[in-house]
């Protein structure tokens, strides 16, 4: 009987953990903690990652891609630029070829991404909330996506 109770408690605990983890599964817009940026709407965000110029305090905002996580990448493609990976890359190549706009820089680990954000206060990126929450040098601007 005690064993059954223990198993039941374990199951409940496991389900609760999943639920909590699920609630934490958010994708957030981030910048360096020293960044003066605080409010970027969805249209501006799309423009930044499509190679258009969006300015704050006379400074152009630079978008940095976080490709450290495949799911995160899919969420970015769906919710921010609304394109397939292939179309998005093609679009960036086209901008470089036509207008000399350099492709968006990509980072496959969070440490390098944090360093890049810190080096330019007018740069932004996105990350999983549970990865960057509490990360020194990073501030969360807003939630981009959350698991419903």
């Amino acid at each position: 009987m005690d064993l059954v109770k223990a198993l039941l408690l374990c199951c409940i605990g496991f389900i609760l953990c999943i639920k909590v983890a699920g609630a934490d599964h958010q994708v957030v817009l981030v910048a360096a903690s020293t960044s003066p940026l605080h409010n970027i709407d969805s249209l501006e965000l799309r423009k930044i990652f499509l190679g258009f110029t969006v300015k704050r305090d006379g400074q152009a905002i630079t978008g940095l891609r976080n490709i450290s996580d495949e799911d995160l990448n899919d969420i970015f493609l769906q919710t921010v630029v609304a394109m397939s990976e292939k179309s998005y890359k093609r679009r960036q190549l086209s901008l470089t070829l036509r207008k000399g706009i350099p492709r968006i820089a990509e980072y496959d680990n969070v440490e390098d991404l944090v360093k890049a954000l810190s080096s330019n206060p007018y740069s932004i990126s996105y990350a999983r909330e549970d990865i960057v929450n509490g990360e020194p040098g990073i501030k969360i601007l807003r939630v981009l996506w959350e698991k419903s």
Binding site: A60, T96, L97, K99, G100, I101, P102
Partner: peptide, 15 residues
Amino acid sequence: IVYSYTNGRFKILGE
């Protein structure tokens, strides 16, 4: 070969 450089408002593009 396509090379581009952007620094603030200044740009270079060569092909």
